[in-house]
Design a protein around this nucleic acid. Structure first.
Length: 103
DNA sequence: GGAATGACGATAA
DNA sequence: ATTATCGCCATTC
């Protein structure tokens, strides 16, 4: 399957996400350039077990209801900036080095 | 080829 | 704030 390469791209990007930061499915998909948010989610559902999936959130900073509770534990431990039940995308939104002037 | 589905996203009401 | 609907992209039946 060629999707293997796509999977590598997604996992690699997710692994790059530093603690206390998060990336939305749409951002990841856009960063890779191919597919869409659903493909990222599909990959995560299949191979996400080997990467910090809790650092991958929805566009509005919330997590899928299925993993919301699980992610809260990680956020609490890693110190992810949160506002109520959602992650503070304004502070936590992260993009790979070199693609942003946030350094 | 067409319909249905999914760890999504955005917009409308 | 919340629910509902449409659109997107690839996979699966």
């Amino acid at each position: 399957m060629d999707s293997e390469a796509y999977v590598e791209s997604v996992l690699r990007l997710v692994e790059q996400i530093p603690p206390g930061r998060v990336m939305s499915y749409g951002e990841i998909a856009a960063c890779i350039g191919t597919g869409g948010p659903r493909q990222v989610g599909a990959v995560m559902a299949e191979y996400g077990g080997g990467v910090p999936w809790w650092r991958v959130v929805r566009a509005d900073g919330s997590l899928p209801p299925s993993h919301d509770a699980r992610a809260r534990e990680r956020y609490r431990l890693e110190g992810t900036p949160m506002r109520g039940d959602r992650v503070e995308m304004r502070r936590a939104a992260w993009v790979p080095d070199g693609a942003v002037g946030g350094l």
